[in-house]
Structures are given as C-alpha cells and as structure tokens.
C-alpha cells in the first residue's frame, strides 16, 4: 500500500507569511525609526522575535511534507522524524480560535512516540482527518489516555470515542 503525501496549502502558507511580515514590520518600524523608552523597547523587541519565530515556523512548514504510512507517520523536511503507530504514547487534539464565539478556528494534533519529539500538525494540512484517524486508532490500541478536551474535539470531528470510567 502506498503512503499518502500531504502538505500545507500555498494559500494558508501565504497568509502566515503575510502575518509574520506584518507583525515584524508593525513592531519593528518604531524600534528602528523612533527613540523609544526602555520598557516599550523591550516589549516591541519581544514581539518582533515572536513574529520572526512565526515566520521561521511557517518556512519550516513550507519545506515539510507528511507521509501517512500504514505503520506510522513520516515527517520529511528540516525537522524530519518518523512516528511508529505501535510506539505512540501521547496524543493531544486541541482547538484554537481567535474569535470570541470560538467559531472559524482550527484543530491542532500533537502526537509523539517513545523515541521521538512531539509532532504538531494543524487542520489546515490537506488530509488532516486521515492522520487524526490513524493516530486515534493507534492511541486506542496502545491504551494512551486522552484528555477531556481531546475526546471532545475528536467527537466534534465525528470520530467516536469511548468515555473512560474514573480511576
């Protein structure tokens, strides 16, 4: 069986590049152009670093591709790794939204195995649901404990989850 290849869409990446650029520009311009007070200088420097990191992370996503294989998830790129489903020992599915009514948000899957770091994938990735399904199947098989938030988010994606009994 062939591995399914997945990448972040160009539209999403372009949006993130623009956000990073706008952030660096808006916070960096006063730093360069004005003689700022010490505290404001530190705050703006921190924000410039935040947006620069966001830009670097977007660039990493740009150069990364995910391969969903029958026995695990392969991440190819500068921070490449392989998470074998059989060794999966942690899984978190989170939901983030910048709106007050929490609409129009995005999911983030974080998975890790005994011998790898956390791998975080956003729902903007084409084929995200297939990865979540694979990870959830592996987590259920390995008896990985899922948080209440993860269970609620899985249900929101129409993935059936069994409610654990209190220990």
């Amino acid at each position: 069986m062939n591995a399914a290849e997945m990448r972040y869409s160009q539209r999403i990446l372009l949006g993130d590049y623009l956000r990073a650029g706008a952030g660096v520009l808006m916070c960096g311009a006063p730093l360069v152009a004005l003689d700022l007070g010490r505290w404001l200088g530190w705050i703006l420097t921190g924000l410039v670093i935040l947006f620069a990191l966001f830009g670097v992370r977007t660039a990493l996503r740009h150069t990364t591709r995910f391969l969903l294989e029958p026995d695990g998830l392969r991440v190819e790129g500068p921070m490449g790794t392989f998470i074998a489903w059989a060794r999966l020992n942690r899984m978190k599915l989170s939901y983030y939204s910048t709106k007050r009514d929490r609409s129009d948000g995005w999911m983030q899957l974080a998975v890790g195995s005994t011998d790898t770091r956390w791998v975080r994938i956003d729902s903007h990735l084409e084929g995200f649901r297939d990865i979540v399904l694979g990870a959830h199947r592996a987590a259920a098989a390995s008896g990985v404990e899922l948080s209440a938030a993860t269970r609620a988010n899985l249900r929101a994606m129409d993935i059936p989850v069994e409610e654990p009994l209190p220990a």
Binding site: S94, Y95, Y96, S97, D101, R102, S103, D104, G105, W106, M107, Q108, S123, H124, F128, R129, A148, A149, A152, N153, A156, M157
Partner: peptide, 16 residues
C-alpha cells in the same frame, strides 16, 4: 484558556 481547555465549543465549527 487556550492552554487549559483547548476544546471546541458547541456551535463552533473548525476547519476539518
């Protein structure tokens, strides 16, 4: 709140 309870709320729709 995002760190403590990153849960989808009733009525909210995520990009799936």
């Amino acid at each position: 709140l995002a760190a403590l309870d990153p849960r989808i709320r009733l009525g909210a729709t995520a990009e799936k």
